[in-house]
Amino acid sequence: MATNPRTKEGPLSWWRWPSLQALALLIIAILGGLLLGPSWVSELTVVGLYALTVIGMNLFMGYAGQVSLGQAGFFGIGAYSVGIITTQYQFSPWLGLLAGMLIAGVVAWLLGKLVLKLQTHYLALATLAFGMIANVAFQALSITGGNSGLTGIGNFSLGVSFSNTDYYWFVWILVALAAWYATRMVHSESGSLLEAVRSSEVATKLMGLNPDQVKREMFVVSAILAALAGGVYASWIGYIDPTVFTFTLSINLVLMAVVGGMRSVYGAVVGVGVVQLLGQGLNTVGQMISPAAGGALELTVYGLILVVVMMFWPNGLITAWKGRYRQSSVVSPPSAVSD
């Protein structure tokens, strides 16, 4: 939302209505699913899963101005919940999905109570530590299958078991819903409080609202969305192990969130698509050189993109393209209170 969406005279311009935008996204996804081949469908399912996660990070980082370097932990909680419930207990993966979201939400709420009062550097570190501890737990617990992980994770089914294409539909419906939810929140009158928290915590307190409340809600939302994505991922791919839910995943998620623009929900979706497809392209090119070079080339370019984008367009490419923000003021809130 680079432009100011609401004026005092009237409501949002019609093309910014959250429902219309979400519908448009869904139509594009449907067309994509019908027109593109199976390999693209799988690729775009991954894009959708990351987009789901990144929409939550957008709210927490872009709009509320916080930072999390541990989202892979929540993604993993969702994935392992589905994995454990279907492989160790033979329950429905749907139950696992709900359990995962619930657990992630509760963990985020408790964690948020402890760490959200910390300033940027320390918050980055505390969330990073959470991600690391989660990863250690995935490796060390027996219920998670240790380093070998879990295989044979159950498929979702509604009457019939989900096919690859069904997962695609399911994921993109979830993305559209999440985007609808996020844009509705941001555009609501109460959504102004997100910017209040990002812009000035002191001024927020002076309005009688503890900023930690808003931050914590967004942290919980981002955790639940990450767990949702993780749960669907586990069921779709069928096997998981701790090497998936690492610090590197957390950083890749950050990369996807910032490339599109942290304060643009649909920018985030585009950002994820660009980064993911670029990554695949680089991987393919790298594989031609040597088996190991694929991932390495991807890492190198991802890192450089993050550096370059942050140096020159700290508000993300989509935002820069819309060109409405003065660069400097955006990510840096005015310095603190008193004197």
């Binding site: 102004s192 910017e195 990002r198 812009s199 002191v202 001024a203 304060r263 310095s335 008193s338």
Partner: peptide, 13 residues
């Protein structure tokens, strides 16, 4: 506050 702290990226309204 001595340095006014408005919420920069939303409208005055």
């Amino acid at each position: 506050l001595q340095t006014p702290q408005v919420f920069q990226q939303i409208s005055v309204m």
